[in-house]
């Protein structure tokens, strides 16, 4: 069973439309994007290719393009376009204008049962 640990990341409006911001949660960098259709996405910030910062990438139709070498990742599934590349995704949503992130226990160094 996964226990939800919810973290408030602050105002939705902080993230410029169509862009991303990197949040560091317990030492893990998480890229959070807000698309022009006002949807939120959260993925691990470090590109599996060479650790490029995905939060600086261009997004569109549910994809992010890594700024360093252009590898692409699906923001919902984390699946990359390059063989064997995949980033972790996190549950995220908006509540009364604030961003809520559901962080899995392993990021908090808590053993799951």
């Amino acid at each position: 069973m996964r226990t939800p640990y919810l973290v408030n990341l602050g105002k939705v409006g902080d993230i410029p439309l169509g862009q991303g911001i990197c949040y560091i949660v317990k030492g893990t960098e998480i890229a959070v994007f807000r698309s022009r259709e006002k949807k939120l996405f959260a993925v691990e910030n470090k590109c599996p290719h060479r650790q490029g910062p995905l939060s600086e990438g261009v997004i569109g139709s549910g994809k992010v393009i890594c700024p360093l070498h252009g590898h692409k990742f699906d923001l919902t599934t984390g699946q990359g376009t390059e063989k064997g590349e995949c980033v972790r995704t996190f549950e995220i949503w908006e509540e009364r204008g604030e961003i809520v992130l559901n962080i899995p226990g392993d990021l908090l160094n808590i053993k799951e049962e």
Binding site: M1, T3, Y5, V7, L9, G10, D14, I15, P16, I21, C22, Y23, I24, V25, K26, E29, N45, S55, I103, G105, L108, I110, K111, E113
Partner: peptide, 19 residues
């Protein structure tokens, strides 16, 4: 926030394992 670097998020409630 144009030039803002990564934001440190404080996880206030140190969650206990209540399974």
């Amino acid at each position: 926030h144009q030039f803002e670097g990564p934001r440190l998020v404080e996880v206030l409630r140190e969650a206990n394992n209540n399974g």
